[in-house]
Every structure is written in structure tokens, then in C-alpha cells.
């Protein structure tokens, strides 16, 4: 079981990193969601997998009588899920606002804060014209909007 989960976690991390290296913000967000889940699964797996031994103390006893599962990784994951959910929700709102303000979800075109001198948006690289990314409603690259709307 651990081996299967290890491969699953590794796969999830790989997909998450691949998605976060893409240029569209939407994929970065999906990547982050996968990264959070991969991390949670990792904590779960390295914390030790125990079958059918819930950490419950039998009635009348003051300590467990049989070996039980460690409940700590599960409480860590619960906390991490809550935090991850909140942060992911914030990230989605942020991305939505960004596409409204910047009129762009191509991260390569979000370089106004990196450049040494303020960049004219038209000077940047050619629009992203990878086959799958082209917008059917917008075949001709239009001049990108400048500044806040």
C-alpha cells in the first residue's frame, strides 16, 4: 500500500510542478491545489499506515489496550486541509481580480513589476499561440489593455 501511495504522491507532485510551470494562471492554481493534496497525502503516508485500529480507548480503561493508529498525522492533515482550502479560495479570487485588472492570464506578460525600466506591454514576447491555448473567439491578437480598468 505504501509503495502505491508513494508513486501516487510522486505523480501528484510531478503534475503539480508541471502545471505551475505553465504560463496561464489558471493552471498554476490547479497545480497549487494538487500540490496541497500531494503534501497532505505525504504526511498521511509517512506518518505510518495502520489498518482498522482507530485511536479509541475501550470503555472503562484509561489507556488503549491494543496498538492503535497515530492520530497526530491526521490532525495535522485536517489543519492543513483547512488552511489549504482558505488559501486556495483566496488564490482563485486573486486570479479573478487579476484577469479583470491586468486583462491577462499569461504569466509571461506580467512583467511590469520585474523590469528595470517600465515596459511597454506591446514590446513583450509574441502572444502565446500554442495550439491548445488559442482562443476561438479571439483569433487576431488584439492590443492588450493598458493599466487598470
Amino acid at each position: 500500500m505504501q509503495v502505491v501511495l508513494a508513486f501516487l504522491i510522486g505523480g501528484l507532485f510531478a503534475i503539480a510542478i508541471y502545471l505551475m510551470l505553465r504560463r496561464t494562471v489558471a493552471r498554476v492554481i490547479i497545480g497549487l491545489a494538487l500540490l496541497t493534496n500531494a503534501t497532505n497525502l505525504l504526511i498521511f503516508t509517512v506518518g505510518g499506515l495502520t489498518r482498522a485500529a482507530p485511536p479509541l480507548i475501550p470503555e472503562g480503561q484509561d489507556r488503549p489496550t491494543t496498538p492503535i493508529a497515530d492520530s497526530m498525522p491526521q490532525s495535522l492533515i485536517l489543519t492543513a486541509i483547512v488552511i489549504g482550502f482558505g488559501v486556495l479560495a483566496f488564490m482563485m479570487v486573486l486570479a479573478f481580480r487579476t484577469t479583470q485588472v491586468v486583462v491577462e492570464d499569461d504569466t509571461d506578460r506580467m512583467q511590469a513589476t520585474d523590469a528595470l525600466v517600465p515596459v511597454e506591454m506591446t514590446d513583450l514576447a509574441e502572444p502565446y499561440d500554442e495550439e491548445e491555448e488559442s482562443h476561438p473567439h479571439d483569433p487576431v491578437p488584439t492590443p492588450r489593455a493598458q493599466g487598470a480598468t
Partner: peptide
Amino acid sequence: RAQMEGAIKYVTINLISSMLFLVAVGLLYA
């Protein structure tokens, strides 16, 4: 506009760092 661009980068990189932190905590606990 600059704020939103800065925020996207800041949020993404900090979330990745948090995930690395969490992975490290999980492994350390194990």
C-alpha cells in the same frame, strides 16, 4: 495593476514555500 501582478508572484511562491515547509514537518514527524 502592478499590485495584482506582484501579488500573483508573491502568493504563488509563498504557497510553494509553505508546502515545502509542510512536507518537511511531515517527514520530521515521521
